[in-house]
Nucleic acid binder design. Structure first.
Lengths: 131, 131
DNA sequence: ATAAACTCCGTACCCCACTACAGAGTCAAG
DNA sequence: CTTGACTCTGTAGTGGGGTACGGAGTTTAT
């Protein structure tokens, strides 16, 4: 049995059943085949896909943006050139995010360094650098 | 005149007026003093603060998390030790995000490398690696 | 001194991304 | 073959994060 029922997928991916149906409606995962009864029969690969979606969400991508990421590979009308351009654009977006996070991180490190005593925090300097 | 009216702040920070009032209600920016008329008089520093909030949002932090980031410096009951611990926790969170973004980036790079022709995209391999 | 632009508050509404029913049918273990 | 868990569709509700009025008062440029 190489197909999963929705509840199993939900458990493995760590989301609720309703979320899966929602992602299907929104086109973030392909509509799986159904058995006679109407039950969905998911390929095991959908679990990874859902996990990817969750990861990307954590990183501040909207579902629409995640759509774009996912569709990089499947649009049959796109030329390879177009795919490459879109991919590069996504890479650029990601790099911007990484840099912003690194700036944020180093700001927090300054706070850490500047705050080495054990007195009240009001004495603790910095973090005006947060700007 | 070292104080700004809400419309000016909005323009400089690149958000709507309503958003500023909303952030004030939610405690993300301090309530500014008012003139007789009730008009808010913002210190120019609020612009940076709002920009910081927007940046952090882009990176997938919720307003509640941003609160925590911002409050690292101002809780007068916290000891320096507590501030350091919270700060370290935020740094850890940020590092997790950075790593996830870097994985995503290198996945996209593989796609780029694997997709060097100019035929239809359906021929373009990979991106099952997106998992 | 007056019109245009701005601000106030409160309330209501919006979009996104779920989440929770309700009522009916299906499946699998004992 | 029953019973309890699972799934179906559809619709409605929720929480986060704003956004949009409406009606009234304030500022400011001319």
């Amino acid at each position: 049995m190489t197909s999963l029922k929705i509840g199993t997928v939900a458990k493995q991916a760590g989301v609720g059943i309703e979320t899966i149906r929602y992602y299907e409606r929104e086109g973030l995962i392909p509509s799986p085949p159904r058995r006679e009864s109407g039950y969905r029969e998911f390929p095991p690969s959908v679990v990874k896909r859902i996990k990817f979606i969750r990861h990307a969400k954590e990183l501040g991508f909207s579902l629409a943006e995640i759509q774009e990421l996912l569709s990089l590979r499947v649009d049959p009308d796109a030329t390879q050139l177009q795919v490459r351009e879109k991919t590069q654009a996504k890479i650029d977006e990601i790099e911007v995010k990484i840099h912003a996070l690194e700036r944020m991180k180093s700001t927090l490190h300054s706070l850490l360094d500047a705050c080495q005593g054990d007195g009240p925090a009001s004495v603790c300097p910095i973090l005006d650098a947060l700007d």
